[in-house]
Design a protein around this nucleic acid. Structure first.
Lengths: 266, 266
DNA sequence: GCCCGACCGTTTACGGCGTAAACGATCACG
DNA sequence: CGTGATCGTTTACGCCGTAAACGGTCGGGC
């Protein structure tokens, strides 16, 4: 009954994801535990069963081991989740994917921001159940506003922009605008994606009953129902991103015009 | 020791919040349970102790009642949380606050979007620990993309924009851009706010050790440390919001110029 | 007056959770 | 052949969400 996605013209970030999903659940291998194997298994587990299903006992089981065995490599559940987040974020810097996403060798700051955005989006689409964790976990350095855990990423961002001529203040403002855009867009995208699959998973009672929740008192909703449910995430992402870049470009130009000025973006 | 916030020039949304916090924890009143009292208590509890601290037993205790008593009014914990989210979102439409936020009597669609944005921001600042729930809970109507629970709010949004001349398609696109902006910005704001208070709560061991996590390998971070930790959320929110409105205005103008055109924003 | 159901909070119980602590088993090295 | 380190298991504790049975306190019909 109907394909899962109606990808009109294909989403490159999603395609990259699908191509690289050969990991699979590993399941009941006898032993040889280590922190890395545990993190990998945890990510796979969350991808398959959702965050709330992850318990120490169950994770242990998929590794063919009792729950307590994990505690030799991980201080506790919370730290495990921190580890999952760090691990997932670090894949941004993995070069071996070899394609156009690797952020370190970029071609100007706009190109850098584009690569970074699509890199993060790929992560979000590859691990939709993990991504909310990235957004909600307390940051590595709480004084960084907004706090986005990976110091390496923040450093990379700020370094690139200041190298490109952004005064510190403008680079910081850009960092905030950029990360809040990215977070908001991707969080909505994965939430909706999760909602879709959970819909497919369990039709849950009368499908008609909940399919159209009586919208008679919501005329605008009723009228735009089809439009609202259409997925144009990729295109919208692109446009919003480009708009943000335009805005930053404007800031940079203005800053250069009146050099020495503090360049107060906000 | 030291005031909590260094509010330079005051944040109106935050001020409105602080003025209205007279509710207090209610604590051990004997009986007279009902769904409303439970929801109110749950919100107060989360505000004071954080989401993860909320358990049925503890919530019962603050109401002077055993955990199981709650189940007569609430089907279970998850539904309780849904109720909390709905309740908090509905306060957007409470008129009795009487001030400039009430969304229903607005002055043009820009004014409406401004009111709505600040209304949501007030909610986020008033209940920083509840807000992430608003963002992460599955939506009331899963087919709405992005799913933002309150159908009433979506309806209100779409109705206002189409009344103002936006074609359906543009209104939907605007809804997505707007809600993802709002979500991203506010989520970062409350996360960082939560990080701050949890920092104040428990200095947790040697304060020097974790205060400056050795940034020697992160020069840009080190250089902009002060800038990064400064709170300009209100100003940045305002600027990003205005920028979004400008963009929507441009779309509307272009649409009008070539009327009958589909007005494809994305 | 009395009984009886409805209402509503309590008690008890169960399986699962995170994790502290004690306990083997295995194995490299003196 | 110890013998200590390494690493997974067992046991146990307190807390969780919640199903099910229970009791106590009413208001209305006989």
């Amino acid at each position: 009954m109907a394909k899962t996605t109606s990808d009109d013209h294909r989403d490159p970030d999603l395609i990259a994801v699908q191509a690289g999903s050969a990991a699979a659940s590993e399941m009941t291998r006898p032993a040889g535990l280590d922190r890395d194997r545990i993190l990998t298994a945890a990510i796979a587990f969350i991808d398959e069963n959702g965050l709330s299903a992850l318990t120490m006992r169950r994770l242990g089981a998929t590794l063919g081991v009792e729950a307590m065995a994990l505690y030799r490599y991980v201080p506790g559940r919370e730290d495990l989740l921190d580890g999952v987040v760090d691990r997932v974020v670090e894949t941004l810097f993995d070069k071996d994917d070899g394609d156009d996403i690797y952020v370190e060798d970029h071609n100007g700051w706009q190109d850098y921001l584009m690569r970074l955005a699509h890199g993060v989006r790929r992560i979000a689409l590859a691990h939709p159940s993990v991504f909310p964790l990235v957004a909600s976990r307390p940051p590595a350095a709480p004084w960084v506003r907004p706090p986005l855990r990976s110091l390496r990423m923040v450093e990379s961002f700020l370094g690139t922009l200041t190298d490109a001529g952004f005064p510190d203040q403008a680079a910081v403002a850009a960092y905030r605008a950029y990360s809040s855009f990215l977070l908001g867009h991707l969080l909505l995208e994965v939430t909706q994606l999760g909602a879709q699959v959970s819909l497919l998973d369990q039709p849950e009672g009368d499908p008609e009953a909940q399919a159209n929740t009586d919208l008679t008192q919501f005329p605008a909703l009723l009228r735009t129902e089809k439009l609202l449910s259409r997925d144009k995430s990729a295109a919208e992402f692109e446009e919003a991103l480009e708009n943000l870049l335009d805005r930053l470009e404007r800031v940079l130009r203005e800053t250069r015009a009146s050099d020495g000025d503090a360049g107060d973006l906000a």
